[in-house]
Design a protein around this nucleic acid. Structure first.
Lengths: 245, 245
DNA sequence: AGTCATTTTTGGCCTTACCAATTAGCGCCA
DNA sequence: TGGCGCTAATTGGTAAGGCCAAAAATGACT
């Protein structure tokens, strides 16, 4: 057996993060709402849309949204008043996992990701093993087949970056890489243009992933670094381009 | 039947405390499960009944039970494994929400700092200005004079690192650098050895800072990067050495 | 008999649809 | 003007079903 005796627990932030691929839906939704709050679209003390409407806007079912709201209620981000509505708590007591300051633009986020993940791949390259390489290969293959089927490989994209960060053998770095990835995802969902999901952009992203993989296979840290940096840069370009259309 | 609207004076746990009578159902259910765990009916590491069965036993619907389970998952009481079951966490690391640090060793923290700040100085080097350089110079001079007076220049050390991160022109990076610096400081304070503050270690740290400054002055990104990486590495060495004495 | 691949079963994940309970606003009437 | 009751809006909770992942049972092959 592969015997995965070493996962579970890991309550890194307030929201449990499993290294396993599929993040549960309520966590993703909670992140999205948190991002909306931070971005100012849901100002403090304001009431957000009704459960049903919000569920539709975020494209999830109402029970899933309710689960996300419970998570947000527990960490003090929102206040749910029966029969009245859901209200954003004053930021003073919102001590949720990632209380970030405003003024962090998407491009800055991506630049920071490029810098940090660029440094991470160098470490990962030094500790790369045949097993980890095979795991990355498998992820890319599944990503490719999903694209062919017209499905958006959101989670596989995340899993690829996380697997590399994990391979760097530093749980602090892995945590930060994961948090920054989620932050981007949340903001993409926030600007609900979602043209981002056209097959073309995913094909391009896959090709860049392949390049990173090739660098790992060649055990070439500098190549891996530049490939990762370039991938995130291009990803940012695609993102902003789609947003402004 | 589940409702029993007005009994249950049991405002335990960290669940939101509302004075209003009708506590939400998921909170009541979560409390029931917590009680069962404490009473030994659900021993640690055991698997509790399947969702469907448990919902029936507690006489609530499945969505309500799931909401309760999410609350328990967030505060670390249970671990939900898809396709496998719901398991009671070991009491050691249950509760206490903000237990972020577990599994993140000090050496990992410092390695992550070295990687991230190493990448940050490269960006900062590219945007370095005479004004920023003068500011760094001033910080180092004040640091030197404080050491001479036998005062520990804690804040100036932080300010030096933060000024560089700021100069990189990326607020996301600056935030992360600050958070990681503070994380180390808090852990130093936790392990109350504090021999760390001997003048010798500060003199060494100052010399390393001077080296970083010299690299900036020469506008040599690679030199700056290696100087910063080395500084953090040596800093980690001093720290761990002092800790184990 | 032992081992590996395959199938079946278990169990969590998510959705649609429905009804009930509560609150807030509005108009009505004294 | 002020209180009262009604209605619409909104959250609370339930039921049933399909889907997918993980473990357990099965069977074929060596």
């Amino acid at each position: 057996m592969p015997s995965s005796p070493s996962d579970r627990f890991d309550p890194v932030s307030l929201t449990p993060t499993k290294r396993g691929e599929p993040r549960r839906l309520y966590q993703q939704v909670a992140d999205q709402i948190r991002a909306h709050i931070r971005s100012g679209r849901f100002p403090p003390l304001s009431r957000l849309p009704a459960e049903r409407d919000l569920a539709q806007q975020l494209d999830v079912s109402r029970p899933s949204l309710r689960e996300a709201l419970i998570a947000l209620e527990i960490d003090g981000s929102v206040d749910i008043r029966m029969g009245s509505g859901i209200y954003v708590c004053a930021p003073s007591e919102a001590q949720g996992s990632a209380t970030q300051a405003l003024g962090e633009s998407p491009s800055e986020l991506m630049q920071a990701r490029a810098a940090i993940e660029g440094a991470t791949v160098v470490l990962a390259c030094a500790r790369m093993t045949p097993e980890a390489l095979a795991e990355l290969r498998q992820m890319l293959d599944r990503m490719r087949s999903m694209i062919a089927e017209g499905v958006t490989p959101f989670e596989h994209d995340r899993a690829f970056h996380m697997a590399i960060a994990q391979q760097a053998g530093n749980s602090v770095l892995a945590r930060i890489v994961g948090e920054m990835f989620d932050e981007r995802q949340s903001r993409i969902a926030a600007g609900l243009s979602r043209k981002y999901e056209t097959p073309d952009t995913w094909i391009a992203a896959l090709a860049e992933h392949e390049l990173i993989y090739a660098a790992f296979e060649a055990v070439d840290p500098l190549w891996a670094q530049s490939a990762m940096t370039r991938h995130i840069q291009l990803s940012a370009d695609r993102w902003t381009r789609d947003m402004e259309e």
